[in-house]
Design a protein around this nucleic acid. Structure first.
Length: 288
DNA sequence: AACCAGGGTGAGC
DNA sequence: GCTCACCATGGT
């Protein structure tokens, strides 16, 4: 029995394709329909106007409502962006994106793989890692591998999947997760202060400032985390033309406060989208 | 054929 | 504290 969730102006395609999650692929022959995996569940998701339609049973409805953050009102973010003449244009291209509530270990490994890489290739990497080491679910999907499984993976095999020089980072970070208590340890980071969580995450091999911010935002619920990659460098400097990249990013994060992470995602999607051909009818931000 | 992609590490300063 | 070469891989 399908489930229909009230989704407001939630945009499924944008939310699962904007580079925050790597486990959703479009269903051939349909528009705005995706099959994806989160934790130990897989599902088909379809945009049905202002609703999100799922093929799961009623018992999983609350899980997906939480995963897609349908319980949260994004009006304050939209107002914040609309009030800035530079940021306002990204509303047209990014409205409806929600920060998904993903599994911390999956985000940790996925964003270790993201280093100096691009979204399309990361998606393929994560998919191959999952199907090689993950538990098979129904529907031909695979759960993301456990820390135990990846801690025992061989670097040679990971390299054969295309992981490249990040292979030792994956194995060692999985080992370190295991040493500290497994996947549940990462969950405990939610209740720690921001700076303390960042410090701990950066002690994992392959985790620097950017990856730590992604894990905190996408996996641990730190809404004020503001991951800075090459696109956000450019976007931040468009917002603050006088400042260098680092100072501009700091100013932007402070300006958006508890909405910094979501604002970052809207900016990322807008800037990256413009570089990839743009959204028809939507003028680009001035990169200056 | 260089250059780029949701960067991090280690060496040298 | 800071900068910089280097790191695999595939697409343009």
């Amino acid at each position: 029995m399908p489930v229909v969730l009230d989704a407001g102006n939630f945009d499924l395609a944008r939310s699962v394709s904007c580079g925050q999650a790597f486990r959703w692929r479009p269903i051939a022959g349909e528009t705005a329909a995706f099959i994806g995996v989160a934790r130990d569940k897989w599902d088909e998701a379809r945009q049905c106007g202002p609703s999100l339609c799922l093929t799961c049973g009623e018992g999983d409805a609350s899980f997906w409502r939480h995963y897609f953050a349908l319980d949260r009102d994004y009006a304050p973010l939209e107002a914040l962006l609309a009030s800035d003449p530079i940021a306002a244009p990204c509303l047209e291209s990014s409205r409806g994106i929600r920060i998904l509530r993903q599994d911390p270990f999956e985000t940790l490994i996925s964003f270790i793989l993201s280093a100096n890489n691009n979204v399309a290739r990361i998606t393929g990497l994560v998919e191959r890692v999952a199907s090689t080491y993950g538990e098979p679910l129904n529907g031909g999907c695979f759960a993301f591998p456990t820390p135990e499984r990846l801690a025992g993976a061989s670097e040679t095999e990971l390299r054969s999947l295309g992981v490249g020089y990040r292979a030792p980072y994956v194995v060692q970070s999985a080992c370190q997760t295991l040493d500290r208590g497994g996947a549940s340890y990462l969950e405990t980071l939610r209740s720690l202060p921001f700076a303390e969580t960042e410090r701990i995450l950066r002690s994992f091999p392959g985790v620097g400032p950017k990856v730590a911010a992604c894990v905190m935002l996408f996996g641990l619920g730190f809404d004020e985390a503001y991951p800075v990659d090459v696109w956000i460098d450019r976007a931040s400097q468009a917002l603050y033309p006088g400042l260098n990249a680092k100072a501009a990013a700091r100013a932007a994060a402070e300006r958006f406060g508890p909405w910094a992470g979501a604002a970052q995602q809207y900016l990322f999607h807008h800037f990256r989208g413009n570089a990839r051909g743009g959204t028809p009818g939507v003028p680009p931000l001035d990169p200056a």
